[in-house]
């Protein structure tokens, strides 16, 4: 994938300061995370087997959950849809191996690494900030590490993935909305003093 000097991310510091560092929450872009949309039927044994063989772990079949293994993760997005994430530049290799293994099956792999960027939000106030604009019930009784959901934050569509109990969240957002969402987060965090 091209020369890294040719890369730009929607929230590149050069084009879009400031970083969001506050006393009880911080957020930062995780640019260029590898992302593949994997489509196939969870009712089909071969599809699940082949996916597990390539990924090294089973695709999550429980709605709105995430399976993680090392730097690979699979987020349940719908009954026949997952998003496989990986470290930057590994996606092409995974995609190719998936495609090869799935030949002859009704399945599809689409590279969307550039179709979304990731904002990581972490800190004791992270949940409060999300509650300013997200209709999901994020209470620890309802939404825990390993859960994901497609929903909205303010006026942007997002995929939300809770990483740990800090709490830390990854927000997946389309690059065209990233600056809007970043500005919204900076504004929402304003009541938590800057560190």
């Amino acid at each position: 994938m091209a020369d890294r000097t040719q890369w730009g991310s929607p929230l590149d510091a050069a084009s879009w300061p400031p970083r969001g560092i506050f006393a009880t929450v911080r957020f930062e872009e995780r640019p260029f995370v590898g992302k593949l949309i994997l489509r196939g039927s969870a009712d089909t044994r071969e599809f699940l087997d082949v996916s597990r063989a390539v990924l090294g772990f089973a695709l999550p079949t429980t709605a709105n959950t995430v399976a993680v293994d090392g730097d690979l993760a699979a987020l349940w997005l719908g009954p026949r849809e997952w998003m496989v994430t990986t470290t930057p530049e590994r996606e092409a290799d995974i995609a190719e191996r998936l495609c090869r293994a799935l030949v002859g099956q009704h399945a599809a792999v689409t590279d969307v690494s550039d179709g979304r960027t990731v904002i990581r939000l972490a800190g004791p106030s992270a949940r409060d900030i999300l509650m300013k604009g997200c209709p999901l019930d994020l209470h620890p009784r309802e939404f825990v590490p390993g859960r994901c959901a497609q929903s909205q934050l303010a006026r942007a569509q997002i995929i939300l993935h809770q990483i740990d109990e800090t709490p830390t969240y990854d927000l997946y957002v389309a690059p065209s909305f990233a600056r809007y969402l970043w500005a919204w987060l900076v504004d929402a965090a304003a009541e938590y003093a800057i560190a």
Binding site: A63, N64, G78, P135, A149, S151
Partner: peptide, 11 residues
């Protein structure tokens, strides 16, 4: 029926 109860604004 897939994701559970959500607000109308998502639909």
């Amino acid at each position: 029926p897939y994701c559970g109860p959500r607000d109308e604004t998502e639909f």
